[in-house]
């Protein structure tokens, strides 16, 4: 075998080895903006509409059509009151929170509160979440643990979550009705913890305020 042959073979072997090791290592080596190549497409793409998919049949290309007038949701129900219509809501939900205040409900309340409320209201409800701090500037987010918010009725808190208030968007489409009541329970608990903290002597109050979230967990 000539030297040229040997060199060629060595290069080929090296390339193959790198390729194989690269593949098997599982690390992403390169990114592509092109959709994956389908050598044998089989039945990967079938002719049917997919959720949030595309449908050329309709002028706006949407596979998912708007519900007809008067359609009712299969699960849950649409929230009937508009933003700011607190009176009607308080009358309608006069019975207060229908959920029992159990550990399970509070755990669920914490989970949903952390997910949907904490970006602005913070994990402690004090209204200084990361989005609030970085994004809103002068626009204040309500401190859920202060006196004014503590005086809110359960129905009013539920209404604000469902329909929004000022710049807060409505969450009725994203949080189920049961979960919203669980959040109300959890907000009440946050308020109790904060109130317990503020009745302590001055020096302690600031420290307790800062660590409300860790006290909650006990």
């Amino acid at each position: 075998m000539s030297t040229a042959w040997k060199i060629t073979l060595a290069i080929v072997a090296a390339v193959l080895a790198t390729f194989t090791i690269g593949v098997l290592s599982g690390k992403i080596w390169w990114f592509s903006e092109e959709p994956p190549l389908m050598v044998v497409p089989d039945m990967d793409d079938q002719f049917h509409l997919k959720p949030q998919g595309e449908a050329r049949f309709f002028a706006d290309n949407r596979a998912q059509r708007d519900p007809v007038e008067g359609a009712l949701p299969r699960v849950g129900r649409a929230y009937p009151f508009a933003m700011g219509d607190v009176d009607s809501a308080e009358k309608y939900f006069a019975a207060g929170n229908p959920l029992p205040r159990t550990d399970f409900v509070l755990a669920r309340g914490q989970n949903r509160f952390n997910t949907y409320c904490s970006p602005c209201h913070n994990y402690t409800g004090t209204g200084d979440g990361l989005v609030q701090k970085r994004g809103f500037g002068n626009q204040e987010t309500m401190n859920l643990t202060r006196e004014q918010a503590r005086a809110y009725s359960d129905a009013k808190i539920f209404h604000v979550i469902s329909a929004g208030q000022n710049i807060m968007p409505p969450y009725a489409d994203r949080i189920s009705e049961t979960d919203r009541w669980a959040i109300v329970h959890y907000v009440r608990e946050l308020q109790q913890k904060a109130a317990a903290g503020s009745t302590q002597p001055n020096g302690m109050a600031a420290a307790a305020q800062g660590s409300t979230h860790s006290k909650d967990m006990q």
């Binding site: 080929v12 193959l16 390729f19 194989t20 593949v23 599982g26 992403i28 080596w29 390169w30 990114f31 592509s32 903006e33 092109e34 959709p35 994956p36 190549l37 050598v39």
Partner: peptide
């Protein structure tokens, strides 16, 4: 042989699909 190797490994999902990053 090279073709077979490239096809065998190249058609695996962890080669062809991983790293798909559309704009």
């Amino acid at each position: 042989a090279i073709g077979a190797l490239v096809l065998y490994f190249g058609m695996r999902n962890d080669v062809s699909d991983v790293g798909y990053r559309p704009q």
